[in-house]
């Protein structure tokens, strides 16, 4: 079956982006094979396991092989996360992080297809080449901007401290002076 696959034509996207950036369609490794003629072919195709997710991602790596981050590193992470040190099982977090990292660190060994041309900025699900803002559109855009009461944008239209568990004279409150206790 596989040896009769027809490689699909490498398809280049017409017209490079105006700023001359990277793109061809990199079909990279993606390939469409020959059409199935009958159910037997399909059955056959489906019966061959291709990869094991457990194996590929090393999910059951023995604990001894893992490299946990240091206790200091974990404390720093708790601090950055705004989570308490007290009551935190540092060892447990170290081990868990180690497992998670061994899972995602698989990416280190995977080469990026077309590395030079591949921009991480393109990873978002928005237009890669956004429409340019020109002068007219800029001024028009500014003139059309207005306050939306449905977004609370009209001054004094809603009580901003109304949802807070604590407030004082229309101020929000943070207890224990910010500078004093911050290390």
């Amino acid at each position: 079956m596989y040896k009769t696959w027809r490689l699909c034509r490498t398809h280049t996207v017409g017209g490079l982006c105006h700023d001359g950036s990277h793109r061809f369609v990199s079909t990279g490794g993606a390939k469409i094979g020959k059409k199935f003629e009958n159910m037997n072919q399909i059955r056959d195709y489906l019966s061959r396991p291709v990869w094991s997710v457990h194996e590929y991602l090393g999910i059951n790596t023995k604990e001894e092989k893992l490299e946990p981050p240091s206790a200091e590193a974990v404390k720093k992470l708790l601090r950055l996360s705004g989570l308490p040190l007290e009551g935190a099982d540092i060892k447990e977090i170290q081990m868990r992080l180690a497992k998670q990292l061994s899972f995602i660190n698989k990416l280190h060994n995977i080469p990026v297809e077309g590395e030079k041309h591949t921009k991480e900025y393109d990873a978002r699900l928005v237009q890669r080449n956004t429409k340019q803002l020109n002068y007219t559109k800029l001024l028009e855009g500014i003139s059309h901007q207005k306050q939306d009461a449905e977004l609370g944008e009209v001054s004094g239209s809603w009580k901003a401290t109304g949802l807070a568990a604590e407030s004082k004279n229309a101020y929000f409150v943070v207890k224990e002076g910010l500078l004093k206790n911050r290390k």
């Binding site: 306050q147 609370g152 944008e153 001054s155 901003a160 949802l163 004279n169």
Partner: peptide
């Protein structure tokens, strides 16, 4: 006229304004 990522008022009279008066839902990070 208005703030950077929402259209709540960028007040020129900040020294005398009532607190949390020119704050939209976005400014409060709802």
């Amino acid at each position: 006229k208005n703030k950077l990522f929402s259209q709540s008022t960028n007040s020129a009279t900040s020294l005398v304004d009532a607190p949390n008066h020119h704050t939209s839902y976005y400014d409060i990070a709802l």
